[in-house]
Structure formats: C-alpha cells, structure tokens
C-alpha cells in the first residue's frame, strides 16, 4: 500500500513466462543439511503445476463418488436391480472410443505445435473439440432415452448413481470443452506463440484428465 515500492514495468510479452524464475544465482548458504537442490527453479511452471494439483483434487472427488457407488452396489442383492432399464453398453462403448480419440487428436495437435506448424495445431484442436462435442451429444441422447424408459435420479440407487456419476463427468467434459474452445480460439488468433504455450498445455492436461476418468467410470458404471 505504501507507494514507495512500485512494481517494475511489465516486460515485453515474449519474455513473460508465467512467473517462472530465471536460473538461480549461485547458492552460498550452508545449513549443514547437504541439500543440493535449488527448489524454485526446476520443473513445471505455475499454471501447469496448478492444473496438476487441481487434477489431484478432482481425482479425490471422483474417487468419493466411485467408492460410494461400490458401497451401494455391494449392499444390493442384484445389480442392476430388477425392473430397471439396461444401460446402453454398446453405444456408450463406441462413444468411449470417440472420447479416447479426442485425446489422440489432442496429442497430435501438441506435436504440430512443437514442430512449429500453427495451422495444423489449430486444426487438430478444433478436431478435438468436435470429438468432445460429439461425445456429449451422444451422451445426452442416451440420457433422454433412459429417462424415457423411466430411469431417473429419483428412481432408486441405480438411477441415482448412474446420473450422478455420469452427469458429473458430463459436466466436466462440458467445462473442459468450453476451456478448450476458448483456448483454441486464442491459439487461432496467435496468442500463445513460441515459448508461451503453457496455457495450451494446461488446457490439454485437463482434457486428458477428463478423458482418462471416463474409462474408469465406463467400467464401474456400465460394465461391472
């Protein structure tokens, strides 16, 4: 608040690296613990690190949901409970492939970026987003059918767990999709160029996470 010390001027855009520090000055201290490491200066930048931790929290979130499902299932005599509609295993299986494919396209996009082919980069990003949207559309269609068959959130444990787990994952895909679309639009406008790609990579990390959670859910909710 004291204006005595003012923030230094903003550096030119290409020198900004998300708060990462330049190489460390030589280290003179000696606290006798023989530690040779320079802490702050290695590894990921802030943004990707934060997304990594966010993924940790999300993993716990889904972990809680999945264990809740398993606990409830173990308490039931028959699963799925009799008289409940069957889940569309085959269609969703194909849809799983769609989502997994989106991860592949995203990796391809990343490779294009690293090779310095911005146009291809953007194209593959759009492709990824399209696959994600397709996944959501198919999911939504299947949901409407299931609701038509009488499976709802309120129709007992089966509906509860199905819609909660799959629905919350769907929300995550939606959020990741919005993030991806914004990022792609910015990339298309040349926002994240050489050496400034951390935001793109952070977005990609989250996308891979959302994709990675899906097979687990597919397995626990649909298959077993």
């Amino acid at each position: 608040m004291t204006p005595a010390l003012q923030a230094p001027p903003r550096p030119p855009a290409e020198r900004r690296t998300n708060g990462r520090l330049p190489p460390a000055p030589p280290d003179f201290g000696d606290d006798g613990d023989g530690e040779g490491e320079h802490g702050p200066r290695r590894g990921l930048d802030n943004l990707r690190l934060a997304v990594l931790f966010f993924m940790g929290a999300e993993a716990m979130f889904f972990g809680a949901l999945i264990s809740a499902l398993l606990v409830l299932r173990l308490g039931m005599a028959a699963w799925p409970p009799p008289l409940e509609p069957r889940l569309p295993i085959a269609v969703t299986g194909l849809n799983t492939l769609v989502l997994l494919a989106s991860s592949v396209t995203l990796v391809t996009a990343g490779r294009a970026r690293r090779r310095g082919e911005p146009a291809r980069h953007v194209r593959w990003l759009w492709g990824t987003a399209a696959l994600g949207a397709l996944f959501l559309a198919v999911q939504g269609y299947e949901w409407i059918r299931l609701i038509g068959f009488g499976l709802t959130l309120a129709s007992g444990v089966y509906g509860t767990t199905f819609f909660a787990l799959i629905g919350l994952h769907g929300l995550h895909v939606l959020a990741a999709l919005v993030w991806l679309l914004v990022t792609t639009a910015l990339v298309a406008r040349g926002r994240f160029g050489e050496g400034r790609s951390a935001p793109v990579q952070a977005c990609a990390m989250f996308w891979h996470f959302v994709v990675g959670v899906w097979p687990v859910l597919y397995f626990t909710v649909y298959l077993i």
Partner: peptide, 21 residues
C-alpha cells in the same frame, strides 16, 4: 486457496530457500 499455496511453495521460493530451509 490450497492450489495456490502449494504452487507458490513449490515454485516461488527465494534463491537459496531449500525445502529444508
């Protein structure tokens, strides 16, 4: 908050501030 704290501690320590300092 916690993401912020962890990131800050991992990445933004002053020069010479080892974990065990």
């Amino acid at each position: 908050g916690s993401i912020n704290y962890i990131t800050t501690i991992v990445n933004m320590r002053a020069p010479g501030m080892h974990l065990f300092r």
